[in-house]
Design a protein around this nucleic acid. Sequence first.
DNA 1: CCGTTAACACCTAGGTGCCAAGAT
DNA 2: ATCTTGGCACCTAGGTGTTAACGG
Lengths: 214, 214
Amino acid sequence: MIITKAGRRMFPAMRVKISGLDPRQQYVYHSSKWMAAGNADSPVPPRVYVHPDSLASGETWMRQVISFDKLKLTNNELDDQGHIILHSMHKYQPRVHVIQKERGEELSHVRAVPQGDGTRTLSFPETVFTTVTAYQNQQITKLKIDRNPFAKGFRDSGRNRMGLEALVESYGFWRPSLRSLMFEDIPGMKQGDKVSVRSRSLLCYCYNNFLSSC
Amino acid sequence: MIITKAGRRMFPAMRVKISGLDPRQQYVYHSSKWMAAGNADSPVPPRVYVHPDSLASGETWMRQVISFDKLKLTNNELDDQGHIILHSMHKYQPRVHVIQKERGEELSHVRAVPQGDGTRTLSFPETVFTTVTAYQNQQITKLKIDRNPFAKGFRDSGRNRMGLEALVESYGFWRPSLRSLMFEDIPGMKQGDKVSVRSRSLLCYCYNNFLSSC
DNA sequence: CCGTTAACACCTAGGTGCCAAGAT
DNA sequence: ATCTTGGCACCTAGGTGTTAACGG
């Protein structure tokens, strides 16, 4: 994933369909978790992306696909735009937090995600990605240009579509697949089985698994 | 103000600075109230525009000017985009509601504004406007073109700036003036004097008073 | 006759990868 | 060497008044 100082979107965006919620007031958080690869060289407190539709009822969240397409990544540790701060050349795994609204707690881009019974944390291993400042692999570049509407200016309309795209399609990843969610090991959290999540837009992430660099 | 079926913004937008709030959780609503001019020919239930920053603390609201520039007006009574539905050739007065968040009440574009001690309703007589589908007065047109960045394509950069603009400037309206707020006569509401509001962008509205049509 | 509509040219605002230049 | 930066051309997305055609 390309990151800059000014902040760029994550493409493709995390898109999720959720069910099994109580039609009560809920949030959806989205955050990023730093994965392995070196010791603690991250002095920056982690941030979360609060979905702009928050605060909304469970009924509202379940009605349609929840898209995090306005989320922006940056490598600027002094960022004051509320973007998710990442380090280049590191591997990350996006996480989605479903947080039940209780009492008068405030939403915040900087505050840590409240933990406890009211919090569900989901993560999909196929959405793991590596941050870069310039693409290392020409096939990833091609894929981004073909899929991202904002990159249409670089499209080579007459090219033959063979390559990784056809390969990945043969794996059946390009169609949304129903995923059971994976609760993380948060102390005191019940591993309730009522919530299910459908992950979409997996295609490009799959490339990140096929190719070691992105 | 121009209204269409698809929905157009109100220009200039309502911009307000508020003080005297308790730094607790608050909303800011914005709605429109139909004024006089004929009997009840409005079978459509009135809508309100919920400021996108809602829900936020009083501290947040007081920190900067609150702009309602994304509010859209429409003359389509079957509108399903949540826009404010108005009738053409009628006079309206925008209102701002400051609503204290209590319990678990939900925000809604259609629900009526809750009334009681926790609600303050403000209105500025100088922001009264008349709805049209085509401008009736060439000076209003000129003003809109000169002030609205999206209408820059119609600007006649070499024109002489004399006319109503100079006239209104002589009245001192083009500078933000501190306005004491006017609480409406809502039963059971205390006329507390702690809240003050600074209304901005009054210039164009003033034209609506100088000119009978807009 | 007059109010309304929809397509239009022209803007603002912002999201792409590219590429030459800079930084380490 | 390798990674990073900032300006760029090229897009999407959407906000203007205009204008001709429409409709009561």
